[in-house]
Design a protein around this nucleic acid. Sequence first.
RNA 1: GCCCCUGUAGCUCAGCGGAUAGAGCGUCGCCCUCCGGAGGCGAAAGCGCAGGUUCGAGUCCUGCCAGGGGCACCA
Length: 536
Amino acid sequence: MSTAMAVVAAEDGLDLAVPAASVHLERPASREHGDWSTNVAMVTAKKAGTNPRALATSVVGVLERDLPDHVASVEVAGPGFVNFRLDDGWLHDALAAVLDQGEEGYARPDIGHGEKVQVEFISANPTGPIHVGNGWWGSYGDALARVLARSGHVVSREYYVNDTGGQIRTLGTSLLARHRGEEVPEGGYRGEYVTELAADYDGPDDVAVAGRWAAARILDRIKATLDSVGIVFDEWYSQASIEESGAVDETIALLDAKGLIFEEDGKTWFRSTELGDTRDRVLRKENGDATYLAGDLAYHRDKFLVRGFDRVIDVFGADHHGQVASLMAGVEALGVEPGRLEVKLGQMVSLVDGGEAVKMGKRAGNAIDLDTVINDIGPDATRILSLMSTLDQAATFDLATVREQSVENPVFYVQMANARIAGVGRKAVERGISRTPLAAVDLSLLTHPRELELLRCLEELPEVVADAAVDRAPTKVTTWVRRLASCFHGFYHDCPILADDVDPAVAQARLWLVEAARIGLAIGLGLLGVSAPEAM
RNA sequence: GCCCCUGUAGCUCAGCGGAUAGAGCGUCGCCCUCCGGAGGCGAAAGCGCAGGUUCGAGUCCUGCCAGGGGCACCA
């Protein structure tokens, strides 16, 4: 780390000499190009009136007068890159840092500086079982929250419960029909769960009461399902409570004060076209009921203006795309700076099973039930699969590849690395070998390419966490975890740790390297919400 | 018609504007007197099409083609 800082300082020195805008210090894709590389010469050559290679050459000349710690050489390459080659010592220092900071302290880049951010996700209506799309986007939201929390943000996870309105009435109607042994009316909920619930219902023959009763039951089941994949919330926020509190009227009044409200056809309208929406929106219908948007605006007013979140990230399914423009317009109208509300849209997910499309379940009615998938492939596979592709990708997944513990199972590959790490620990105990204190271990004995590769991977984790947070892309953690597992398997294959003919000093250094790998895996899997079993 | 997302290897997906585009599966080879071969090593194979910006484009911009999702006083 201190080495990296020294290199950055060298780069800063250059910034003073040459005005530069987009100077990067980065890890080259190919190791032949060194450990670090900067494009400073290419970016600045034009303004400096020279060519990149010539500038790079003089830069290297300056640097070579006094090389920073751990820098073995600096050279010009390609179109004008300045490449730094480091000695292995910087990796040994990095290893010591991982071990020193441990699972709690390592890879906690403070990019949030305590920013209060709310992540709202899933928020599926309690009118039926949660489906796979919710599980996929939910895994994203949960992992994003974890990544943000690890990178210096104060995070709150929230589920907005749509426990009022027309859909709940429809649920009540459907439940009562089944309760009487009748068919569900057109447009109602026909899934088997309604029949199951109806059998237990012993309340009054009242649509509103029946609807609330059923919604509460269904919400309990949703919670149980999410709990089984480790998705938890800090807050379950009731839509009914917003409407009952008078917040909707207050919000409309706020908009009215800005001249954005008008009455027409007996309805109350929001002039959202003033703020980029495609048409104006109704907030209160002729019968006096608030629309969904009215409630949603009151809800977002509560998030920003009452509870004081600096930033709110809403994770919706792509089928809610149509809501975004009016929500954004409304939030801006309420005086919230654009940018403090981010909406992430998760594209649709489809499942196949050995090439055959998975059919929608009878139980859920019109979608693939998340519970069924979790029971099939397990919570860990459900989560890691969800986090292997980006939110923007309309992904297709094959359940057959992850159903059993098999070679082609990506979850298994990663967890196997952890099991092997634990196995090394068990074997060490068996052989009566224990780790000597780190201070007495010579980490510089780690020189095998496999060892160095593993160290490089571990050293990148803080940067990966930071990137994942900034880009709102927890999949970057998934990619890293798989790479770490790959590096570990390679190391494990080629570098015996406890074999009889291994120098005890080397064995000690390797044991500590294994411990660092354990720390890295634990952090990475923890961010993904995937368990790290010690045996398979 | 308008808006959003996507098009990367036979398949499923990764790829902060950088150098030779990666992984898993599938296909074809190789490695067990070794700590768990549930591993490792290697080969063949790819950026939808056409322009543009840039020293440099899979990545940014425009157009076209193809697929998915939206366009409510429902959520």
